[in-house]
Design a binder for these strands. Structure first.
Length: 851
RNA sequence: GCGGCAUUGGCGUAAUUGGUAGCCGCGCCAGACUUAGGAUCUGGUGACGCAAGUCGUGUAGGUUCGAGUCCUAUAUGCCGCACCA
């Protein structure tokens, strides 16, 4: 998208921009010393790669979800079934047959209400829209109906949900996906419309509350709206519907005021046979359930607010529930006012009512999912073309052997003047079915040459299965060979941001399960283990501009003084470039030359003095201006951006790597504060100095102990992704071994350090006589023999408080330890005249005496 | 509103199975070397207290010989979802 935006602005082909960005990223990754097997590189915009994206799309088009088998199957099997079971099938025209099949295909065309963004000339997915504005660009988005490709992700809802229990992902991201899938068990019920031979279906999770239904509500977009509007109400309803249309998504969400309108008609409560009014309100969403609800104001807070506003009756259904001021939403208590449900617990009442509904044929038990199908068309240029041509308005797939269908050249990357997507600008963009090739559009005759699809695929098309391609990226015969797939199986560890929770990580799982169903791959989940790395946040600094009486806009107050009465509420915090602040002290000269507006900046320093008090600022005893700080997103506008390239240039990649790990646990977000970096840099320098005069002497037991302690720690840390705790271990070992220059020790040290600080470790390894690269060296093994201590230092507690420690042989038995502690000269002091009530000895750990 | 995660010195953090809270680093303080220091080295640094000692892991309870760790409630912050029936 940025590449396409750039193309629109400058005419530079997105391919050029993308190639440049890839090169830049690769350079940066290399600079930091990341190891990748570049032979396995894939690029989703490369025709050799997107051939398989198109191939997968064709498979989805040619598949349906078999509910009984609970998996995807070839659509040919469904056709066979229709031929066998439906006598009218053969009498239908091809077009009719195709239209029916479209309701089953996993990739299908449908009229969808979409988020249309006029400024971008494109449709956005739900997760690409935020508060009525496009996530990228921030343009207004409106609702519009459009015929688009969709992927039937919803068919996999239950399996996507169940699969979560079998994968080792963070609880937070699994929970996010569970919520996104949104399974709810409930019932669908029919409500007759009075005076019409029509009924509409509602979905409810609270079947037990039917006796308390006092009105119905339809979503403004519901197809039933026109049917239930009476002549008298027509004008008012129209007015309301028009008003709803003008509301942006943002307003609909943010505004919690009750709005709605009476439709004029009544429905009949199937249990009480009472007539209840039908309303239209935008608090009911068209996209969820059936777009219609039965309102139970006593036990649903939104229904309650609506009933209060329109003066509708509220019937409490649970004994003891006070609904005079708010609804009682909890699913607990004993039923009342509910006919045959009276006296039952809510849970039992729900079950009883569901059974009743099915028995009486007024509805059915239903599981509802919030998860919606993914819209798969984009009105953009820079994406994978669909391998699709249109015959009589019906889509047909290109033969698989003709893939990839390459993206055509266009003059401009904008939508056409007639509102077609950018591919409408391509001249050579028609499919010749006889010669099986792309030909000039002027040749379209709708007999053997047909128009090609003008939309392209979205970003997640290429990113959904790329990991499978890593397994076998040079294979021209298959996405991945059986052999390669059986060898690699699935991704062992996926390290990624949590922002992908409801997008990429759902689509990938869907895509993978689909390929699994068709037998192309051997695992139904793509990513065994997933870790969300924390975000590196920015640490901003502030100066405080005086805005009180007599302010010139040029005076800045030190942070430590801003709470003083003369400055309190009279200063305005202003972001200042973190690069001219050191340990929260402002470089005032640099500040004055930073931006022209600060050229004549004056300061009230930390001791309350001003520039005039000391004309020799910056010389003998510099006064200090203290800055405030805050943790915020790293962003240019907050002047807290730190470029890794600059850090590498100044300290080297190894220091950058060590410091980044040192900041804290992998999964945790943390602020980047360059000020602490000297610590790890010093460590590397000190360690490096030990390699000056290397010796071949035999190591002492102490040296071996330090080394093997380190081996044990670092090995454990790596296996547990606890890289931050390794750095202190290295520092401690370095400090213990600071006098050691023995190759035997330092060589192993270098091997341990290699994953953390690869460049310097490689040098160190070589200096110690290591052969080849350190990365091929055998990982050191911890020998417990060197760690054994003959004595244990027991902390001795009295009533849980540590009073002293006592050193005893490791072999001492429980009784011996107890005896030794009681005989210790310090013990009587803490017994305080009393006698030990109980003595707990944990061998090798601790002693606790209860007095 | 629902769900997840977090809360430990001035700061980033550590404490791996319920067993000496604060490792390591930054910052700060003192000293050494130095013409000088945003260099290097050494020592100190949770709070209160002269000390013995007392207190101390957001808050309030609980379990336990013993709780940063387990349980209950609660506050605050961050993230995700949301007029979701």
């Amino acid at each position: 998208m940025p590449a396409e935006q750039y193309a629109i602005q400058t005419g530079t082909h997105p391919e050029v921009t993308t190639a440049k960005n890839i090169a830049r990223y690769r350079e940066q990754l290399s600079k930091i010393g990341f190891c990748y097997d570049w032979d396995r590189m894939v690029r989703t915009c490369d025709p050799d790669f997107y051939k398989w994206t198109q191939w997968a799309f064709i498979q989805m088009f040619n598949s349906y979800y078999d509910q009984e088998a609970d998996k995807a199957k070839p659509i040919a099997e469904l056709v066979k079934r229709f031929e066998k079971e439906d006598p009218t099938w053969a009498t239908k025209t091809e077009r009719e047959q195709q239209e029916i099949l479209m309701n089953y295909r996993l990739a299908y065309l449908a009229d969808t209400k979409v988020n249309w963004c006029p400024a971008l000339g494109t449709v956005l997915a739900n997760d690409e829209v935020s508060e009525g504005l496009s996530v990228r660009g921030g343009y207004p988005v409106e609702q519009r109906v459009m015929r688009q490709w969709s992927l039937r992700v919803s068919a996999y809802a239950q399996r996507l949900l169940e699969g979560l229990d079998r994968i080792d992902w963070s609880e937070s991201i699994k929970e996010t996906q569970r919520n996104w899938i949104g399974r709810s068990e409930g019932a669908e019920m029919l409500f007759q419309i009075k005076g019409l031979d029509e009924a509409f279906t509602i979905f409810t999770t609270r079947a037990d509350t039917v006796f308390g239904v006092t009105f119905m509500v339809l979503a403004p977009e519901s197809e039933y709206v026109q049917k239930v509007v009476t002549a008298e109400q027509q004008a008012e309803v129209e007015k309301y519907l028009q008003w709803v249309k003008t509301r942006t998504e943002r307003e609909r969400i943010a505004d919690r005021k009750v709005t709605g309108v009476f439709a004029g008609s009544y429905a009949v409560n199937p249990l009480t046979n009472k007539e209840i009014p039908i309303y239209i309100s935008d608090y009911v969403l068209a996209g969820y359930g059936t777009g219609a609800i039965m309102a139970v104001p006593a036990h649903d807070s939104r229904d309650y607010a609506f009933a209060k506003h329109f003066g509708l009756p509220i019937i409490p259904l649970i004994e003891g529930a006070d609904v005079s001021n708010e609804s009682f939403d909890a699913k607990e208590g004993v039923m009342m006012n509910s006919g045959f449900l009276n006296g039952m617990q809510v849970k039992d009442a729900i079950a009883a009512m569901k059974a009743y509904i099915e028995k009486e044929g007024i509805g059915r038990v239903k599981v509802n999912y919030r998860l919606r199908d993914a819209i798969f068309s984009r009105q953009r240029y820079w994406g994978e073309p669909f391998p699709v041509y249109y015959k009589n308005g019906m889509p047909y797939m290109l033969p698989e052997e003709c893939l990839p269908l390459q993206l055509p050249e266009v003059d401009k990357f904008l939508p056409t003047e007639t509102g077609e997507p950018p591919l409408g600008n391509a001249r050579v963009w028609a499919w010749d079915t006889e010669h099986k090739q792309v030909v000039d559009k002027s040749l379209i005759d709708n007999k053997s040459v047909f128009p090609l699809e003008l939309c392209t695929m979205p970003g997640f098309a290429g990113s959904s299965a790329y990991y499978l391609r890593y397994m076998d990226n040079h294979n021209n015969e298959a996405l991945v060979s059986k052999e390669a797939n059986n060898y690699w199986q699935q991704v062992d560890l996926y390290l990624g941001g949590s922002e992908h929770a409801t997008g990429h990580l759902i689509y990938s799982r869907f895509w993978n399960k689909f390929l699994f169903d068709l037998g192309y791959i051997c695992q139904d989940e793509p990513f065994t283990k997933l870790i969300n790395q924390g975000m590196i946040q920015g640490r901003s600094n502030f100066v405080y501009r005086y805005i009180g009486e007599g302010a010139t806009g040029n005076l800045f107050v030190s942070f430590n003084l801003i709470e003083n009465p003369e400055y309190k509420d009279k200063v305005q915090p202003i972001h200042v470039d973190v690069n001219i602040v050191h340990n929260d002290l402002l470089d005032v000269q640099a500040f004055r030359s930073w931006l022209p507006e600060y050229k004549n900046a004056q300061f009230i320093y930390s001791d309350g003095s001003t520039d005039e008090d000391n004309p020799y600022i910056g010389q003998a005893t510099p006064k200090q201006y203290i800055c405030g700080w805050a943790v915020e997103k790293m962003s240019k506008s907050m002047f807290n951006v730190v470029n890794p390239d600059d850090i590498v240039a100044k300290y080297g990649a190894d220091t950058l790597r060590l410091y980044e790990m040192f900041l804290g646990p992998l999964e945790m977000s943390k602020p980047w504060d360059t000020n602490g970096i000297d610590g790890v840099h010093r460590f590397l320098k000190k360690l490096w100095n030990q390699f000056e005069n290397l010796s071949d002497d035999e190591p002492t037991p102490d040296e071996l102990r330090s080394l093997h302690k380190l081996i044990k720690k670092v090995t454990w840390d790596i296996e547990h992704f606890s890289f931050n705790t390794s750095i202190p271990a290295f520092m401690i070992a370095q400090s213990e071994l600071s006098k050691c220059s023995k190759k035997q020790i330092l060589k192993e040290f270098a091997v341990l350090l290699a994953p953390y600080a690869p460049h310097i470790a490689e040098e160190m390894f070589s200096l110690c006589g290591g052969v080849g690269t350190v990365f091929d060296a055998k990982w050191p093994e911890c020998n417990e023999k060197y760690l054994e201590e003959s004595n244990v230092k027991y902390p001795v507690q009295f009533n849980g408080k540590v009073r002293f420690t006592i050193e005893l042989p490791k072999t001492a038995s429980r009784e011996e330890v107890e005896k030794a502690v009681l005989q210790d000269e310090q013990t009587p002091r803490f017994l305080n005249g009393g006698s030990p009530k109980k003595i707990i000895v944990v061998p090798g750990k601790i002693v606790n005496i209860v007095v």
